[in-house]
Amino acid sequence: MDTIWIKLLFSLLTIFIVLNYGLLLQGVVRKIGARVGRRYGIRWYQPWIDIIKNYAKRTKITHGIMYYIAPAFRLTGGIGLLLFMPVIYGTDMFSNFSFTGDLLLLLYFQFFGVLGMALGAAEGGHPYSAMGVSRGLAQVTAYELTLTLGIIAIAVQYQTLSITEIVAAQQGGIANWTIITNPLAGIALMLAFLAAMGRSPFDVVIAPQEIPIGPPTEFHSGLLGVLQLNRAIFPAAKLILFMNLLFGGATDWGTLIIKTFLIYMWSVFVGVAFPRFRVDQSIRWYLFIPLIIGVLAVLFMKF
């Protein structure tokens, strides 16, 4: 009885830490992007102000029940991804609710939020939101193939569906990390990671000044605030997932922050160097080289 309450408390603490870390990442990364463009850039604490501002708006309008539920769905996707995986390896408390089959569950959570947004955006009545959602779903489907193949390769390699065991198998130095022991799956996952982070060149579906702003066009005030929270938590959770799968996990918060920051830099540097792909271009790209690498990774495990 006591342990479940303590677990709950610690999971709340995890969410809090990861949320702030995600916001910090956002601010810092936008600053780096600005500096690459020879600008001074936003203040590093700007994401916090934006969220407070959105929650402090005095009015909001509604388009129906699904319109309210959609941001909650989206946030559930982020928090679910975070809580069902071991954040810090080796501690009971920050392993949260991870269990033996969590790898499969996390694959579902990738898709969960986008589907919720699809329902909510459709109820918003804005014709462009539906378009944005369908574009987003198409792109998610494209990179999901590579991601799944990479994860299957890793599951076959370690003969387990538990992230905790996968992390456990990678302990004891860089030579044991999956990215070294199974480079094909590592490359496939890191390519899928680019789109999963929703950064340039694969951010056309959520980019603010694109044809639609995408699904969130109609969302405002507190509802947009919820989406912003998710945009901090979801990338951070995905970073932790990739760190667990490929880079040996983390045994304390310091390692976690260093590792995830460096992993994030991979997508940031690709992002500032490459302009946006259109959705059809990114789908074509994902269905060619990354997909082949993913298939090879699985075949390589078989033989």
Partner: peptide
Amino acid sequence: TPRFDAYRFGYQWRPTPRQ
């Protein structure tokens, strides 16, 4: 643009009146 860079003061451009 880099010359004036209003983002550093917290101004951002949004495409929709709602936000």
